[in-house]
Design a protein around this nucleic acid. Sequence first.
DNA 1: GTCTTTGCAAATGATTTGCACGTCG
DNA 2: CGACGTGCAAATCATTTGCAAAGAC
Lengths: 136, 136
Amino acid sequence: MNTKELLKSKNIKPTIQRIKIYEYLKTHKTHPDAETIYADLIKELPTLSLSTVYNTLKEFANNGLILEVFAEHKTYFDGYNQPHNHYICDICGKVYDINIEFNFLKKKKISGHLIKKFCGIFRGICSECQKKREQK
Amino acid sequence: MNTKELLKSKNIKPTIQRIKIYEYLKTHKTHPDAETIYADLIKELPTLSLSTVYNTLKEFANNGLILEVFAEHKTYFDGYNQPHNHYICDICGKVYDINIEFNFLKKKKISGHLIKKFCGIFRGICSECQKKREQK
DNA sequence: GTCTTTGCAAATGATTTGCACGTCG
DNA sequence: CGACGTGCAAATCATTTGCAAAGAC
């Protein structure tokens, strides 16, 4: 299914902005923030506005098309929408995907509370930044 | 060890503001935000300012005295500083402590990245709000 | 007296909203 | 033409910062 059909199937009108934003996330595995997506896409869509990017991303997230990664005071977006976790480096700020088997996510409830979503964020120094430190 | 001695041991001067904020978090299991702590403590400390609350909480978190719970656009503070996870209700917004055994947290690294912290947040409808819905 | 902390107000940064305009069926 | 989407600017909200005054040792 192409992007246009996919959006239609979610009752989202496939405008050029929405298609480009969606495809941007699918082809960039870098977990960009709204600002970055905007800065890149404006090259193709010169009249694009930042609020359209924000609104579109929120719409996609509400429809389960993408994941939001809430970090300290910033939100990153992930086109890979299967449940998984993230690692954010305290030095370079890069966001990595982490796939671990979480048995508790197979449960529907935890302590009586209904589980709809789980967002796990690791923090520390990533392997790249560790290497850089060793070289010094 | 009382609060005064504890703060001293972390090289934090035990001022009345700091002592009261720390003790507030230790006695309130409700995961308040900075605003709530401020609103409650100003009754005892009429000259307290919101920025002092923010600065103090940040200082405590950096020293491992408390935990920060980063939710969508808001930060909650938790006086219980042992690693654990949280559940936030989408309906009432209440924050619950979740204690699960995370085997991977015993590891020092994940995919080569050094683990310093892990913050896991569940989302959904809490048991209280489920009951309220059933009653309707 | 010097060094630290506080409290206020102003600044910041991410995100959202209001609204007029444009678009497309 | 009528509904929906876009883009701009202004608004908002949580949090941080600059700085003068107050307090501690």
